[in-house]
Design a protein around this nucleic acid. Structure first.
Lengths: 343, 343
DNA sequence: ATTAAAAATTTGCGCGCGTAAAAATAAATA
DNA sequence: TATTTATTTTTACGCGCGCAAATTTTTAAT
């Protein structure tokens, strides 16, 4: 922080006693210059607080240090949580993450990818809508940039996918519920926005049959992202109509379960696994608030940290190898059963 | 979408039959060129899908079209909601919002402002931590860029502030609670991270005294952003110690209230305003999930939409006038009482 | 038709940096 | 010390566009 303000890299190179191209090299990778040179530059940095012009830097670069991160909806705590972890992992690796939410709209997902194009990102981490996504747009993007999908898979798109093993996680829950009481019914959205929902339904059916039970699936009308609202309204309707064949309900995700809990409360039903309880309700995802529902929600915890870290490391591996791998990798982490009072 | 790909503005100008500087002018403001010229350019755009290089554009521009939006914590639904609305309002106005979360850390708030500097934003909308913020950094930023604060105020920083009138909103709640039952105690964090918390405490005291009641404030130990956790643990402790002087508790915000509800449930207390209930619990903010708590939470709704829109319009007014206004404007919107079952 | 105003073009410079190739220097090895 | 190897410097060019001043063309008004 001295008087004469540094205006550009040329001036900074002068005051640090190093040539400009070398300084440029330093900023692209501090380890690529000799230790003594690096020390000189960093000494100068202490005094003069110069930082290269981002726009000029990226103009001629083949690839920038930008990493695009696109999630379907930041208002959903699941995505805000996983987005946060991805963001931090990128910063830690020396990249500039750009976190974009599609606000629940597949059209905006397309727009977000278009915006990212102009930022020449080194790579992109995308949690796609899935079936609702503009498949052509995503595929085209995949061809132009290193792309890693997380949370929701799309067949043959992206160099890698990282998510949760829904079959394992749902089976874990079904097994627990069957063992500890009546077998679960399954409550979900009629037209789910997310491919995981379909996998969970399939997993539920398979798991129930394996346990010699008959699957019972109830689907809520309604579209959009107001899952709590839908869970409450439609779930309440089913509850008061006694539409569930058993006293145990497995919801496709925690947000539906939270709505269902609200409906049960409104109907005066006692939720839980105690003797005096009327029904059991379980969810999936370990939503940040599911610890504080009444009663606390039994659910499956996805390993946010592992998913985020693996997605990032998959991408960075691609970036280092500089070339697309021949094979597409799919990584799924196991879910953990979180036993609380609701089931 | 034709064969010969357009590489730069020069080429695009050629195919559209317009000179490059005029095309440049068009991209900076489509209305600044003659209608016939605009038509020609847009016709060419249909065929050739060219878009200017963002980095080259911003390199020499005095001011970019970037708008920085910084919130303390996107994991908090309040900020994710208001951030979303601000983002959309910016896009609508033809700007490029860059939404940054400080993840609960004032140090990252400082870093975020530093990152924004290098993006030469046309203006910045900041929801600061307040007392915890790096005041010097924010003030310095204010001197270099058009800055509008929202949600939390900092005296004499920013050209404008937009938020909620805590005195009005808390008074509304206190008045309702006093009228409909026992006067409220006040539950809050001992060391709040947000200036609104202090205003709400002061508002509570003032309002209670106006109603001829004695204020009773209980403060929870603990720091950080796990408000539900703190509300549950500390709130539960106070509840079981019968530390509250009345049966009515006004929480400083909804997240604390959600924790408190969870604690009350654990203790077997019936929450609500009915005859058979033990305590009443109320919150503040109309958190997206407060409709689905058990029982649904009585609270104060902040006018997210109005705050976001006003903050954006305040900023854009500054941008148009091109110069800093002499006076600093402060706008606060009234809160609405949302009566549900918890109080 | 003449004039004035508005818009478009031409010309030309420069932004701040990436990058490549060749030359010079330093460090590591024999 | 001589030689090899790794870094750094020099030199030079270009990226894609903003911007300003002067000139020309178009449009509107008289």
């Amino acid at each position: 922080m001295s008087q004469p303000k540094i205006r550009n890299m040329e001036e900074f190179a002068t005051v640090s006693g190093i040539s400009r191209p070398t300084v440029s090299k330093y900023f692209n990778d501090p380890d690529s210059v000799r230790a003594s040179t690096r020390a000189k530059i960093e000494a100068a940095l202490e005094k003069h607080d110069y930082q290269p012009n981002v726009f000029a830097m990226n103009q001629n670069r083949r690839t920038t240090k930008n990493i695009g991160v696109v999630v379907p909806n930041l208002a959903d705590p699941f995505f805000s949580e996983i987005g946060r972890r991805v963001e931090l992992a990128c910063i830690k690796a020396g990249y500039s993450p750009i976190l974009l939410s599609s606000h629940g709209s597949p059209a905006m997902e397309r727009d977000n990818l278009a915006s990212l194009r102009s930022l020449k990102p080194a790579g992109v981490l995308l949690a796609p809508f899935g079936r609702m996504s503009d498949k052509d747009a995503v595929r085209a993007f995949d061809e132009d940039f290193p792309l890693v999908l997380f949370d929701a898979n799309m067949s043959d798109i992206g160099q890698a996918f990282v998510g949760t093993d829904n079959f394992q996680s749902v089976d874990l829950m079904v097994e627990y519920l069957c063992r500890s009481g009546e077998p679960p019914c399954f409550f979900e959205m009629k037209s789910p926005t997310n491919p995981n929902a379909n996998k969970r339904r399939a997993a539920y059916i398979a798991s129930m049959e394996r346990h010699g039970q008959t699957p019972d699936i109830l689907q809520a009308e309604g579209a959009g992202w107001n899952f709590e609202e839908i869970g409450s309204t439609e779930g309440g309707r089913f509850l008061s109509a006694r539409a569930f064949s058993t006293n145990t309900i497995l919801c496709s995700n925690d947000r539906l379960a939270i709505g269902m809990l609200s409906a049960a409360y409104g109907l005066g039903l006692r939720v839980g696994h105690g003797e005096e309880c009327d029904i059991r309700i379980a969810g999936h995802d370990d939503h940040p608030f599911s610890r504080f529902t009444c009663p606390p929600l039994t659910t499956i915890a996805q390993d946010y940290e592992a998913i985020a870290n693996r997605a990032v490391s998959e991408l960075f591996e691609m970036l280092e190898n500089e070339k697309r791998l021949g094979s597409r990798s799919e990584t799924v982490f196991e879910g953990r059963l979180i036993m609380r009072e609701s089931a």
